[in-house]
C-alpha cells in the first residue's frame, strides 16, 4: 500500500512562546515515558505532535495541562508552571468517554462553561450564547438536541471541539482528532484549527497518522519517548528523522515543493 503525504510550508508564526518545555522527563510510577524533551511553542502556532502509539503524546499533553508533574525539567504555560485551568482546553480521544451517557450535544458543549462558572453558579445568558456560537463554528447547531450516542465519529470530534471553544481557551490540546474520522471532517477540523490559530490561539494536535494531516502544521514535534525533531515540517520531515521516530522504513519523494511519504508495504497505515 502506498501512502502519500504532502508537505507544504505554513505561515511563519511570531511572538512570545506560550508553552515552554525545558528538559522534561516524566512518566508513571517508576517507568519514564518522556525523556529530555525541550521545545518552545510561539503564540498562534499549530503544532503537530507526531509519533507512534505509546510514544508519549498523551503523556506530554497531561503534563502541559498539569495533570502529571515533571520528574525533571519544567513546563511553563504563559510563563507559569503548568496547572489545570479553563484557559487550556484538553480534548481527549473520543473513545476515552462513555458515549452511552445520557447527555445531549448541548449538554456536552455547556460543560465547557462549567469550570469558568465556579461552584454553585448556574449557566446564564452569556454561557448559552457562547455555547451556541461554538456549535455554529463546528457546524453542529442543528444537532444540539441530539443524544451524543446517536452521533458519528466525526460529529463526536466536532462536539468535543465545540466544548473546547465554549471554554474560551487560549490553548487547545487535541488528542488524535483524525482517528476514525472521515476525510471531509478531517479537512473541516483542520481548517477550523487554522482559523483559530490565525485568531491568536495556539493548538497542539497529536497524531500517529502521517498520511493526511502533516502538511497542515506550522511546527512539528517528532516524539517517541524522546524528541526526534522539532521545527517547521519542511525541515523536520526527513526520511532519517521519520524512520527514527517510527522505527520503520519510510521513503520520502520530493516533488517540487511537496514531499510524498511512501511506507513499506507491510505497514498498515491507511491512505486518504
Amino acid at each position: 500500500m502506498q501512502v502519500q503525504t504532502e508537505l507544504q510550508p505554513s505561515a511563519v508564526t511570531t511572538g512570545e512562546p506560550v508553552i515552554v518545555v525545558d528538559r522534561l522527563t516524566t512518566g508513571y510510577y517508576r517507568e519514564p515515558v518522556l525523556q529530555e524533551i525541550s521545545f518552545a511553542v510561539p503564540r498562534g502556532a499549530l503544532v503537530g505532535v507526531i509519533g507512534p502509539n505509546g510514544g508519549g503524546k498523551s503523556t506530554l499533553f497531561r503534563v502541559i495541562v498539569g495533570l502529571l508533574k515533571p520528574w525533571q525539567g519544567r513546563v511553563l504555560v504563559g510563563g507559569r508552571s503548568a496547572r489545570p485551568s479553563p484557559d487550556i482546553a484538553y480534548i481527549p480521544q473520543i473513545h476515552a468517554v462513555d458515549w452511552a451517557f445520557p447527555v445531549t450535544v448541548w449538554d456536552v458543549v455547556m460543560m465547557g462553561r462549567y469550570p469558568r462558572l465556579g461552584l454553585l453558579r448556574r449557566p446564564g445568558a452569556r454561557d448559552r450564547e457562547l455555547a451556541e456560537w461554538a456549535l455554529e463554528r463546528v457546524r453542529m447547531h442543528d444537532f444540539q438536541a441530539k443524544p451524543i450516542g446517536a452521533l458519528s465519529g466525526g460529529q463526536r470530534q466536532r462536539v468535543f471541539l465545540a466544548r473546547a471553544l465554549a471554554q474560551e481557551p487560549s490553548i487547545l490540546l487535541f488528542d488524535e482528532p483524525v482517528s476514525g474520522v472521515d476525510a471531509p471532517t478531517q479537512h473541516f477540523i483542520f481548517e477550523l484549527l487554522e482559523q483559530l490559530c490565525a485568531e491568536g490561539r495556539t493548538a497542539l494536535v497529536a497524531s500517529h497518522d502521517l498520511s493526511c494531516v502533516a502538511q497542515r502544521f506550522s511546527q512539528v514535534l517528532l516524539l517517541n519517548r524522546r524528541m526526534f525533531g522539532f521545527g517547521p515540517p519542511e525541515r523536520v520531515f526527513t526520511e532519517e528523522l521519520l524512520n527514527q521516530t517510527f522505527d520503520t522504513h519510510l521513503l520520502l519523494l520530493r516533488y517540487g515543493d511537496r514531499v510524498i511519504v511512501v511506507e513499506s508495504p507491510e505497514d498498515g497505515t491507511s491512505a486518504c
Binding site: G66, P84, S85, A89, Y90, V97, M111
Partner: peptide
C-alpha cells in the same frame, strides 16, 4: 444539588474536567 454540574462533568469526562480545573 449544589455540585450537580461539576459531578456531571467529572462523571462524563473525568480527564477533561480535571484538565479544565475542576
Amino acid at each position: 444539588g449544589l455540585l450537580y454540574k461539576e459531578l456531571l462533568f467529572v462523571s462524563f469526562d473525568p480527564v477533561a474536567a480535571e484538565a479544565n480545573g475542576l
